[in-house]
Design a binder for these strands. Structure first.
Length: 727
DNA sequence: AGCACAGGCCAC
DNA sequence: AAACGTGGCCTGTGCT
């Protein structure tokens, strides 16, 4: 990975060593201010002969001089690298430039049941950029081609000619395609009228299943890291390194060939290697084949569908917010003077230094702290309102319309492998964190309706299933309210006192979440506004009432300690490398502490306990954070991950269902699926949609789906109400 | 001008 | 000492 170093890095990390010697270093005016450690590093580097210049002569180098040197070196290096790359182009890398070459390729493709494919484009925007070339790997014939179609220089075929020739292969579901991040190429192909079918394997998605902790899923980085396992030498130069900001259509064809063909070659090798590992892991292979791989197509459909924005509404709402914000700004200036209230630094200075407000929460200026300070200063209330409105305006009301593409819609992307638990993420824009007021910007086109179906209490249901706790399952099996039943049992109160809106039911809701997320007693106590001891008692009561939930959590902790991973119901893994050792240390230290104190259970406040030796405490706190964090994550990963698996399975069903009717699945918000349907949708249709979701998994408790129907997102009406008023 | 990071805050 | 899991976006700030 190469980038321009900061001037400090230039000298002390050896960035400028093309041939083992540090050619120059920068010190500029800061040389005199070097700390001893760094100076020592320079000195020892000189002694070791790593630096060719003495410290005194280094002083001569200015920052500009060194940067220029560095750039020159990079330019030289780049040219050499490119020249070498071209010179070393393997014999089985071929450019396709003529009709007859293309014809031969098409014939050769007839005997390839599965190939690797990649596109080169003018940029990364799948709704605006275009394809400039395509590469293919033909594994049986053992060669790799690059077909330029829109490079500025060089002999090449027209894109339309190549598309026509490749169309049968690309659209044939029986010809398997292996790609790295297929969603991207599939969108690009759609821009040129080709809907690819037969996606056999996506090396990026598969890699995420094989190691969800990977720091980068870029093909080049995977090659660097794993290439030695499948006979691919380290290719440390990325696209950026080689071509910088130049558009791929400016890259000469000989260079393009070796670069692009290597990509499919590499993808193919990576595929073969991944296939071995998936097969070895069995369950993960099934998860990939049955769930994640087909889901890629669903993502493409969802993103193509997009969301229609009500421009007028956005415009009017924006005006309204802007004028309200303007008024607030005036009164904020009255209260706090001429500072930028968006700046936590300026605000903290004003509140704590000048106005001397009590520092309840370490000079924080977040909502919680401000609310606590509400009575201390009249301006705080305005500030809170200002925060709320500017957030709404800048992040949503102004930002969403800016994303509108030529079809009047926003096409956010949905990433099925961006989270460690298996949940979806969304970006550009993030459609999963729109507050209700921002959701109102999204409407159904004329003749259509938006349907939102969400799994009711999916995570508690998953917990009830996985833990096998009959008591927890009971309310679901008997159609009773979960939280009321729980509250009644845990607090030993008659069910009448635990109904909707009761404090016990409210506490129980927070409490169950705390159990699933492993919340500390301290946090739980503040959330429930009770003492830490009461919170502890509450959790103890909960575990006594639902012993198998407790066993499940303890079992999960034991399992992750032994195996360094946990698994969802469908075999998705969440790995915690290095956890075993730390957990052993943690447990043995915890045992020692308990023995010293003569107690069974680790006390809540180990640090403040003076009966425990300092050294022991220090050692314990060394691993405490990591181990407890991994334990919380492991329990959460099983529950959240299983819920995510179920939603993904549901999405496959929904996609099938929608496709058959010409409707579209257009998004997911974790436990909710969003669809665009005809406004002629019937109660029966909705029942079938819900059936798609409830049949996605068969747990020991039933899955329940609630559906809202709407013309405008955020103004949904429950299906019962919708169809009642329609009739 | 562009990058990285922190603080803050939106969702489930 | 650390405090609840999974994400992404905006603003300010400091840097080159």
């Amino acid at each position: 990975m190469m980038r321009e170093p900061t001037w400090e890095e230039v000298w002390y990390t050896g960035w400028m060593r093309p041939s083992g010697k540090l050619q120059a270093a920068i010190l500029s005016s800061k040389l005199g201010g070097l700390d001893k450690k760094r100076l020592q590093m320079v000195k020892s580097a000189i002694d070791a002969g790593e630096i060719g210049l003495g410290v005194d002569s280094l002083k001569k180098f200015t920052k500009a001089h060194a940067m220029r040197l560095w750039r020159d070196l990079q330019e030289q290096r780049k040219e050499t690298v490119l020249k070498d790359m071209v010179a070393q182009t393997p014999d089985n890398y071929r450019l396709i430039q003529t009709e007859s070459q293309l014809e031969q390729l098409v014939v050769a493709l007839q005997s390839e049941p599965i190939i690797s494919f990649d596109t080169e484009t003018t940029g990364l925007d799948v709704y605006n950029d275009v394809i400039v070339g395509m590469s293919l790997t033909l594994p049986k014939a053992d060669y790799h081609v690059y077909i330029p179609v829109a490079h500025k220089v060089g002999k090449q075929l027209k894109r339309s000619v190549v598309m026509d020739a490749l169309m049968p292969m690309l659209t044939n579901p029986k010809v398997g395609k292996v790609l790295h991040n297929a969603k991207y190429d599939m969108h690009m192909l759609i821009r040129h009228g080709v809907r690819m079918r037969g996606l056999a394997h996506d090396t990026r998605v598969a890699m995420a299943l094989l190691n969800e902790n990977e720091t980068s899923y870029a093909l080049k980085n995977l090659a660097t890291k794993y290439g030695k396992h499948f006979g691919f030498e380290d290719t440390s130069l990325t696209f950026e390194d080689l071509f910088g900001k130049t558009c791929f259509d400016e890259v000469p064809l000989d260079v393009a060939l070796v670069y692009a063909a290597k990509d499919t070659h590499l993808t193919w090798k990576l595929y073969e290697w991944q296939r071995q590992h998936l097969q070895r892991l069995g369950k993960l292979e099934e998860l990939y084949r049955e769930l994640e791989n087909p889901l890629i197509d669903v993502c493409v459909e969802m993103e193509q569908c997009g969301f229609l924005i009500d421009r007028n509404y956005a415009q009017e709402y924006g005006e309204e917010l802007r004028s309200e914000i303007h008024q607030l700004e005036l009164s904020l200036t009255d209260h706090f003077g001429d500072i930028n209230c968006n700046s936590p630094i300026q605000l903290a200075r004003k509140l704590y230094d000048e106005l001397k407000l009590p520092e309840v929460n370490a000079r924080s200026t977040d909502v919680k702290t401000l609310k606590a300070l509400k009575d201390k200063h009249p301006g705080i209330e305005h500030l809170l309102k200002y925060r709320e409105l500017t957030k709404l305006l800048s992040t949503y009301v102004e930002a969403l319309p800016e994303r509108i593409k030529s079809d009047g819609r926003i096409h956010g992307s949905f990433n099925q492998v961006a989270t460690v638990t298996g949940r979806f993420s969304s970006n550009e824009p993030n459609l999963q964190n729109l507050p209700p007021k921002a959701r109102k910007l999204i409407i159904a086109p004329p003749g259509k309706l938006i349907i939102g179906s969400d799994f009711s209490q999916i995570e508690p249901r998953v917990l009830a299933h996985i833990s096998g706790d009959r008591h927890l399952q009971e309310p679901y099996l008997n159609g009773q309210d979960l939280y009321s039943t729980l509250a009644s049992r845990v607090f030993k109160k008659p069910i009448e006192e635990c109904g909707d809106g009761s404090k016990y039911r409210k506490m129980m809701k927070v409490g169950l979440l705390a159990v699933m997320y492993g919340t500390s007693m301290h946090t739980l106590s503040t959330q429930l506004e009770i003492t830490v001891d009461e919170a502890h008692q509450f959790i103890c009561d909960f575990f006594r009432t639902y012993p198998q939930v407790h066993s499940f959590i303890k079992y999960t902790h034991e399992f992750v300690k032994e195996n360094e991973y946990v698994e969802t119901l469908y075999g998705r893994k969440r790995r915690f490398p290095g956890h075993r050792q730390k957990a052993k240390v943690y447990d043995s230290l915890a045992k020692q502490i308990c023995e010293i104190l003569g107690v069974e259970e680790l006390p809540l406040n180990v640090w403040r306990n003076n009966d425990i030796p300092r050294d022991l405490k220090r050692k314990f706190y060394d691993v405490k954070g990591d181990v407890e964090s991994a334990r919380r994550q492991s329990v959460n990963a099983v529950i959240q991950g299983t819920a995510a698996d179920i939603m993904k399975r549901a999405m496959l069903n929904l996609q099938q269902y929608c496709l058959a009717r010409g409707w579209s699945l257009c998004g997911t918000v974790h436990d909710e699926a969003l669809m665009m349907v005809d406004d002629s949708v019937t109660n029966g249709d909705v029942k079938e949609i819900e059936e798609c979701m409830t049949s996605a998994a068969s747990l020991d408790v039933p899955l329940v789906v609630d559906t809202e129907i709407m013309q405008r997102w955020g103004e949904g009406v429950k299906k019962e109400e919708w169809f009642a008023s329609a009739a």
